[in-house]
Structure formats: C-alpha cells, structure tokens
C-alpha cells in the first residue's frame, strides 16, 4: 500500500480552479518529482498535502488515514512530513545547530543533549558541522538550503517535501544542493519534490509527474518524459527548459 495517496484533489481560490482533480501515489522509499510550468499548481499541490493550504475537495490518504477529514491532528501530521522551502526559511535568530534542534527539543521533546547529538549527526551528512555555530546570514545560499534540508530530516519524517529547492540558487550552489538531495535519493529517503529544473529532477527521482493547468497529464521516468514525449504539452515544456546540445 502506498504511503501517500492523493485522490481527485481539487483546490479553488475564489473562483479560480488551481487544482482540478489530481491523482498521485507515493510509496515508501520512492522519490517523485512534480514538474510543470509556472502557475500549473505544483506548489499549491504540495502545500495542500500537509494542509498548509486547505484543499477544496478530494482525499489525501497518508499512512492509511484520510487527512482531509476533520479531527485529524494537523500538527502531528506535519511533524511527520519534512518541508523544504524555496527561500530556505531558516530562523534568522538561531544558529545552524539551533535551527536543527528547535523542532527536536520543542516538538519531539528531546533533551538538549540528545537533540544536539542528533543535529550533529545530521549536519555531518551534508558537511555542515563546522558551520554549526554560524547564523543564517553568515551562510551562502547553498549552505542555507543544506541546513534547511537537515532541519527537516532531523525530525525523522515519513516523507520529505521539497518546494523548488534550487530555484533561488546560482548554478554552482544548485550543483551543491542537487548532490545532497541525490545522496538522500540513493539512501531511499521518501521524497516528493516540486521543481521546474530538469537537471535536479533527473538526479533525484524514480519518476516524474507532469502537471499542466491543474491536472496530471503524464507520469514517467525522466528519459522518456524529457525527449519526444507524445503529449504536446509535455514536449513543449521540456523543449523550452532543456538545453539540447
């Protein structure tokens, strides 16, 4: 059974239909990327899945339970879903280490010592231990995003959501962050990532979901999706974003 199953997800803002019945499945250990042009609804979709945005209708079955039903403990749910933002969203008043331990101490009720130990272990994975006493303002964009990823991972979530994790970075830093996420992919971390960057998508996904105007129009592995796809909407998109040289 899938870890996460989205059935017929609809989201309307006022009268605008942003999502028109999305169906997606994600199994444990699987990594999927959601792609599509700007305004296709991919970021809205991701935010619906951890209820940062309330979906209009549809079912979201997470660990066998429909989380759109009333009475769901939203905060417990979110602790089980790591979220990485496009603009990092590190807490500016906390050091790298404290950014990672805050959730562990206050939400998971870990002792300070245990939280620090866990944070150091996780920071090691992304090569950020030596920067642990720095503040976000003292880091490069790539470093910030690596910390943001670790902050999410340290909570041991069932799944990691990434919302355009490389869009705010220059090419050099993008490579840095892609390498880190690729490592997670190889470690079989369950991930759902929204991006419009094919380079990132290719290196971190088992399959790619293509969204256009609020509906899923294709789902396939990168190689089959990127080149000469039968659907003109898909072909058109990748022609414009991939450098065919």
């Amino acid at each position: 059974m899938a870890l996460l199953e989205v059935k017929n997800l609809v989201k309307k803002f006022d009268d605008k239909d942003v999502l028109k019945g999305i169906n997606v499945e994600l199994s444990e250990g699987q990594s999927k990327v959601v792609m599509g042009g700007s305004g296709c609804g991919k970021s809205t979709m991701l935010r619906c899945l951890n209820l940062l945005i309330q979906p209009t209708s549809g079912e979201i079955i997470f660990k066998g339970e429909d989380i759109t039903r009333p009475g769901v403990d939203v905060r417990k749910l979110r602790q089980d879903i790591g979220f990485v933002f496009q603009h990092f969203a590190l807490y500016r008043h906390l050091t790298v280490q404290d950014n990672v331990t805050l959730g562990l101490r206050k939400l998971k009720k870990m002792s300070a010592n245990d939280a620090t130990e866990k944070a150091l272990y996780e920071l090691e994975r992304v090569d950020m231990v030596e920067h642990r006493h720095k503040y976000p303002a003292q880091l490069s964009g790539g470093q910030k995003q690596r910390v943001a990823i670790v902050r999410a991972l340290a909570m041991d979530p069932a799944v990691l959501f990434l919302d355009e994790p490389t869009s705010a970075l220059d090419p050099q830093m993008t490579r840095e962050v892609v390498t880190v996420i690729n490592k997670l992919f190889l470690d079989n971390i369950t991930m759902l990532c929204v991006t419009h960057d094919p380079f990132l998508a290719k290196y971190i996904s088992d399959s790619i979901v293509f969204l256009d105007k609020g509906v899923v129009v294709a789902e396939d592995i990168a190689e089959r999706l990127f080149y000469d796809h039968p659907d003109p909407r898909v072909r058109h998109f990748f022609l414009s974003v991939i450098d065919h040289r």
């Binding site: 933002f85 807490y91 008043h93």
Partner: peptide
C-alpha cells in the same frame, strides 16, 4: 516564510510565536 516553516514543522501558533 519562517513562520510558514514553523507551521510546516508542526508547531502550533503559540509555539511559532514563542520560538520564532
């Protein structure tokens, strides 16, 4: 974004107010 991140982490409004 930081407030949103706190929410996405599973903090209550009170917690994000207190800690962020």
């Amino acid at each position: 974004d930081e407030i949103l991140a706190a929410e996405a982490m599973g903090m209550s409004r009170m917690q994000s107010f207190l800690y962020i």
